[in-house]
Design a protein around this nucleic acid. Structure first.
Lengths: 194, 194, 194, 194
DNA sequence: TAGTAAGCGAGACGGTACGTCATGTCTTAAC
DNA sequence: GTTAAGACATGACGTACCGTCTCGCTTACTA
């Protein structure tokens, strides 16, 4: 018999998500266990298993709970400036220890659990990419971007390198790094004659 | 007292790494246990713990064992063609199920164990990046790349997007995708006047 | 948090004690392991560790489970005959392979684990000694035993030699041996004038 | 090929037996391991296994090494006094913590390993019993002991109760206890007319 | 007096069992 | 009738010792 969401205890749900977040920052993803979540939340283990598929799903929801809403990119008319803004913001986020830990957790989850991967991608990441893509479309309409530029790939050109550097910890994240990246992307997409 | 490598059994070492590779392809990283490795290799658990820090370290070495040597990039004089070659090869590798599983494993390890991360980066990944960087330097000397291009970032511009697409499984890996990426990178680095 | 006996599974308890008894007769005390008990009983190791301190405690309880209740000695009025009966029974028990194995196990446990020793002594052995002591008291009241005989020591005079012979395997256990021992004890306690 | 005793290192033998004794008093029989003996003695494990069958055999030899020679009983002509002496000495020995530990070890060994049991009995215990038996024979020849008394059983009448009390820790060992026991035995063996 | 075979310290090896931990399921009592 | 609590079977963890094995080294007998 599947559980009836109508009877679900909101109190328990909140306690579980809160406990998960606390334990995540205290002991990291690897040190997190269902048992510790249940104990901290003052909840039976069964209550967790009844409503989530496992550790990954709980963590995902706990993170999603407190994630900023994906906001549309500002459009100042100046693509270079707007891109620089996105890149700087992204770089700053990856440089931040806390946010970085969250991303690490999500990335592991993506790699390990195919089912969760889809959810993470669609609920948390896609919106961001879409924001940039929308801005690029507007710019292309305004003739600031080559007509033949593959916009999805350009979006990846923006985020991919940051992700890569973060993952491999090859070099630090500075503002000048962000600006150089934005410049490279601009060069790649600016129409020939400009 | 630390173990003395002089007395180490090469036979056991090989058996362990071979068993690890087999089990990795059979049951994946999550399903891999030290006990199963020991059983399959016909080896005592202690022999594994004596020489490796844990599952991650064994896997890392097992993978490293059979990884192709990082080869220097071919330099045909035509940067565009050479870049296209690298990108195509990289894309093909990520598209391959087996190689992809290996990369997945390594990436998880990087995210989860800081100590291993460094080793993975230095022993397995850095050489590849260095190969591309060297080729770019040669091209810059030949005037085929802007003098002010930040080469490390250009390297990331090549690999980052592929990594990003692979991670998020946003779209499939095709040859035309690879070529479009190579073209974007070329556009970003080609000197203005050309 | 100590376990709550109220929730204890009687089914598991029985299975564990039964498995212990089987394995004890099959492979002896030294060959007995917690893992084998758990496997045979179809029980998790933790369930054993939750309710017992270790191998010794389980064995003790398994033995106690099926031990005959300590019965009061018959009092026929003839002390000599009654004593002969006890000694013969004791000797017979020590001569029996199965019962002997149990005693061996208990004795080792007594020697090795002080905490268990007390329990074994009080729950299993003391009652027997008390039975003989009670019979001796009755006999003393009837004038069949010296008034100044130290009864506790007389009890030891009955069991001690049997234990000693069993332990050292010096000579076999025969009925005539038993009778000779009973006679010696009788001689030691019978009042002078008789 | 069996080892050649001629080449045996006396130095190692001594070190092993000394280490065994130390560890026996420090951590008891159960806590004793071959590895700890080897480490403490500065000796390879193989050297132990070459010359002994296992833990029990080493312990046995270590104990035998420092055991007082079995001395013949004094014969003062007064059996009662001589018996009292033996019993007092035995009781004192069992009351002593150190000697008691040794006896405990030996007893466990007897119970657990049949092969060792024989050796322990013959090399360590039998001589004592023989001493008492010899004294009793002399007494019987002198008419101080019933002609029909089964001397082997009388010997057990002396030692058995002490052993029993020690094993079960039922009551403390005092001098008056010893004397009462000696008196009981005397009563059991003294010829009727005396 | 050299050569050589044994014993030696050391410790790696394949194993077994340990006692602990977390998993996901099942049971009980209380609200 | 869902919950908190927690016992349960399962199975991996990392450790401790087992008894065997192989290394060089030292030592004492043999040629």
């Amino acid at each position: 018999m599947p559980p009836q969401p109508a009877r679900r205890s909101e109190r328990s749900r909140r306690a579980i998500l809160a406990a998960t977040q606390e334990l995540l920052t205290e002991s990291g993803y690897a040190g997190l266990t269902i048992e510790s979540i249940a104990a901290r939340a003052g909840v039976g283990k069964q209550t967790i298993y009844r409503w989530w598929r496992g550790k990954g799903a709980v963590v995902l929801e706990a993170i999603a709970e407190h994630l900023p809403e994906a906001t549309a990119l500002p459009d100042t008319g100046d693509l270079r400036a707007d891109l620089r803004g996105v890149v700087r913001a992204t770089v700053a986020e990856f440089a931040d220890t806390g946010a970085s830990a969250v991303t690490r957790t999500l990335t592991v989850e993506i790699l390990v659990d195919d089912e969760l991967a889809g959810e993470v991608r669609d609920r948390l990441l896609r919106p961001r990419l879409e924001g940039v893509r929308a801005r690029l479309e507007a710019a292309r309409a305004a003739g600031q971007v080559r007509a033949d530029a593959p916009l999805d790939q350009v979006v990846e050109l923006v985020f991919g390198p940051v992700y890569h550097r973060w993952l491999l910890r090859t070099s630090p994240f500075t503002e000048s790094y962000a600006d150089a990246l934005a410049k490279l992307v601009m060069t790649a997409v600016t129409p020939a004659g400009r």
